[in-house]
């Protein structure tokens, strides 16, 4: 929905905003890793080698170089699992956020644009969902849907919908009062046209920012569900599941089994947060005239 001119301008200003740019680079690297794991991973991420359980990585000496970040409790290469896990975690994050953004936009725009009883109804619904702690709600939904990565995406998507609906609604409430919306009504434009041509493009900035920040949250929540054994089913490499699988390893002194997946999660979240924060500034039209 961006005009090309505007997209170019956004990209140009992005390079000027240092933290946003760092976030953008981190994200680009992660996406590349997620697209080409088979070229980057030194080993098969699901191949077990019980003889090589909980081996340390490169820091322990030259003889451990084949598994640079060590192995886990089943003797699988941690680096390879992290690399393949990037694909899993990023897709969970993006798909869950895509679901929540679509649902949230639908609810938020309808409720903000039309107002009245529809607004009251939808917003009370959202309030009810807000009343549950997000991870608890996700677990409840997972309990109903059953375990699995796709179900985790849906559950997280639903959990993030109310917040997105609120963000979209509040943005719509501002745009709705603009005179150009009134001008459209005076011209006889249909509601569908006003919403798609005038409301949506103008609320996109906060929605994009919020979606970016939410992606980080969704990755964390997917990891949490994975940690609880509700997300990715073993042996799929997934960062949260890797963390939970390494609980016993931690007590055995194999810190690397839990630390590196944790760092991977941290990097993804940091990158997305930096980008999201930077976009908040970039997409503010007052700062770019």
């Amino acid at each position: 929905m961006f005009a090309p001119k505007e997209a170019r301008e956004t990209l140009r200003t992005l390079t000027k905003n240092r933290s946003a740019f760092i976030g953008f680079i981190i994200l680009v690297i992660m996406i590349m890793v997620a697209i080409f794991p088979h070229y980057l991973a030194p080993h098969d991420p699901v191949k077990r080698n019980l003889a090589q359980r909980l081996q340390p990585g490169f820091w322990a000496g030259k003889e451990f170089a084949p598994f640079p970040l060590g192995t886990d409790y089943l003797g699988r290469c941690i680096l390879s699992r992290i690399i393949w896990g990037t694909r899993t975690s990023l897709s969970v994050g993006f798909i869950a956020v895509a679901i929540s953004t679509l649902l949230g936009l639908l609810l938020g725009v309808l409720s903000g644009y039309f107002g009245g009883w529809l607004d009251t109804l939808l917003m009370r619904l959202v309030d009810i969902m807000f009343a549950f702690p997000s991870i608890l709600l996700a677990i409840t939904i997972m309990a109903a849907l059953g375990p699995g990565l796709e179900k985790a995406m849906i559950a997280i998507g639903i959990v993030y919908t109310p917040q997105m609906a609120r963000v979209a609604r509040s943005a719509v409430l501002v745009i709705r009062e603009m005179e150009y919306i009134e001008a459209e009504k005076a011209l006889g434009a249909s509601h569908a046209r006003i919403i798609s041509h005038h409301v949506l493009p103008n609320i996109l900035a906060p929605v994009i920012v919020y979606a970016t920040l939410n992606t980080a949250g969704a990755i964390l929540d997917a990891a949490a569900l994975g940690f609880l054994g509700l997300g990715a089913l073993p042996p799929t490499p997934e960062w949260g599941a890797m963390l939970s699988g390494s609980r016993q390893a931690l007590t055995a002194g194999a810190w690397w089994a839990a630390t590196f997946p944790g760092i991977a999660i941290m990097c993804a979240v940091l990158g997305l947060n930096l980008l999201g924060d930077g976009m908040r500034d970039l997409l503010d039209p007052r700062l770019r005239v």
């Binding site: 005009a3 505007e6 603009m178 005179e179 150009y180 009134e182 001008a183 459209e184 005076a186 011209l187 006889g188 434009a189 046209r193 041509h197 005038h198 493009p201 103008n202 039209p285």
Partner: peptide, 30 residues
């Protein structure tokens, strides 16, 4: 047949449309 000109020239034009798109829109709608 019934049209309106607004007070605030800043809020009466959609900031994300070019002037051409703004002027073309009434014709498309009709």
């Amino acid at each position: 047949k019934l049209q309106i000109v607004f007070q605030d020239p800043f809020s009466s034009l959609n900031p994300r449309k070019t002037a051409y798109a703004i002027l073309e829109e009434p014709l498309i709608i009709h």
